[in-house]
């Protein structure tokens, strides 16, 4: 009798989901956002279809404001793993120079992420899109299905979700409709980190602490990643030892001060910081910030 650990059960479930979609959908795609959840998603896709490559392309919706290290990491992974990587940037947004500093985060996110994603999905004619969202991320997600249906106009009807029984997924849909599929639905943030550690999955170096130029703005530590960031009066970038718990557009992503330079140290920080959070002393600004960011993304 061999006992499966929680990570082994989660992994088996995710692989099963990947294979069901490929078996039942005509033209799937995987949304690749370069972060840690995408890293796990990609790793599971590689496992699910080994020894072949994942039988679908990866799609990165580039807002033009990602950390430079993210783009470098993305291109390195695509090269090393010989991935079919599609990169899409909203051409109209680009032409109008839409960005978080000039247009605000809401407009930027809508034009460069949400609209761009719809453009890319329509252009590719994709009928299923894998995403790395987890149910523990946000409370509205706690009720979303693994197979989440979208109308031809990409709209979600939360009141009309299909029941999901056992591991039987109904992937049938009318022409023009599509499915967002979330193989990581039952993973938690801790599961993700443990799995990255256990499977030695490569992740963007920004997750590890290093001296980086940051300014403190509206209570968050924002990294000055390139010369496009206008500094406010009195703001002077200073080198501080920071890392990121989530990754997105650099002007919208807060860093945390940290000295964790290895995965065990990150896990240690996480486990200890949640215990200090539990004791109710320190407000973890990053977890609030990241949650808001996830909502803003409006990806799914």
């Amino acid at each position: 009798m061999r006992k499966l650990t929680h990570l082994q059960r989660l992994e088996a479930e995710s692989i099963h989901i990947f294979r069901e979609v490929v078996a039942e959908c005509e033209n799937p795609v995987m949304l690749y956002s370069i972060g840690k959840d995408s890293a796990v998603l990609l790793h599971l896709a590689l496992k699910a279809f080994w020894p072949g490559p994942p039988p679908f392309p990866l799609l990165h919706v580039d807002t033009g404001w990602k950390f430079r290290e993210m783009i470098a990491f993305r291109d390195r992974m695509a090269r090393e793993l010989n991935l079919n990587l599609l990169v899409h940037m909203n051409p109209e947004g680009l032409a109008q120079g839409v960005g978080p500093f000039t247009h605000g985060s809401a407009v930027h996110t809508d034009v460069m992420k949400t609209q761009a994603l719809k453009q890319a999905l329509d252009a590719g004619g994709f009928d299923a899109a894998f995403g790395g969202a987890r149910r523990d991320e946000e409370k509205s997600r706690a009720k979303e299905r693994v197979f989440s249906f979208r109308s031809a106009r990409h709209q979600w009807d939360p009141k009309n979700q299909r029941p999901e029984l056992w591991s039987l997924y109904n992937a049938r849909k009318a022409r023009g409709e599509s499915i967002r599929v979330f193989p990581l639905s039952n993973w938690t943030e801790l599961d993700i980190w443990q799995y990255i550690h256990l499977e030695e999955i490569p992740i963007v170096p920004l997750y590890f602490a290093a001296k980086r130029p940051v300014v403190e703005r509206d209570g968050a530590l924002i990294m000055v990643d390139d010369e496009r960031m206008p500094l406010r009066p009195g703001e002077e970038p200073e080198l501080r030892s920071v890392r990121f718990r989530t990754l997105g557009c650099y002007p919208l992503t807060g860093a945390v001060e940290s000295t964790a330079t290895t995965l065990p140290e990150i896990l240690q920080e996480m486990l200890l910081s949640t215990s200090s959070e539990r004791q109710g002393r320190v407000i973890d600004r990053d977890s609030i910030g990241s949650m808001e960011r996830k909502k803003q993304e409006g990806y799914f």
């Binding site: 550690h197 256990l198 065990p264 140290e265 896990l267």
Partner: peptide, 14 residues
């Protein structure tokens, strides 16, 4: 002993 602690968490069942 972080290693031992992480091992403990990896061995959890569901």
């Amino acid at each position: 002993d972080l290693g031992a602690y992480l091992k403990l968490h990896e061995e959890k069942d569901l």
